[in-house]
Amino acid sequence: MSSEVGDGVDRILAALRERFGLIGVPDGAVLIPSGSRKYRVASEEAAALTAGRVIGVYVVKDTPMGPLLSIEGTQILGPLARKNVLSLPEDLLDDWMRGGDLEIGERGDLEPGLVIVRFGDLFAGCGLYSPPKLRNMVPLSRRISSGGGR
């Protein structure tokens, strides 16, 4: 790994630690850079292959707002997070997955900025907490359309 690549991984790991209290990736997995300030998680054996055009799963992007975790990023790394995790009632999941912003009021346990969003056992991506609102950051391709949900 070149020092530039290693610096990028170190930088995003530091940002994840600072924002979410994350201290690494699950055992048997590694974080690898993937261009455009994006990072992926792959099994050690997958990361060792150089032939692929896509390796593992995109988990986080280094943005001016801080580390923006993908849905899979919150599912893989979220259980290891110590702070800025927002737990919401499960009956709000459909609204969230339709792409709607949510009114959540003032939350003393959260810092304004990017937060991991979970509904019970389900981690469902990141939102931008700007009290009293939670701005929806579920990508268009992962939202449900109006006929979906319950």
Partner: peptide
Amino acid sequence: LAANVQRMGSINVVVTS
């Protein structure tokens, strides 16, 4: 294929073409 690998979170998959 890569989009489905992403959605299912399959971190041990490498996509080639």
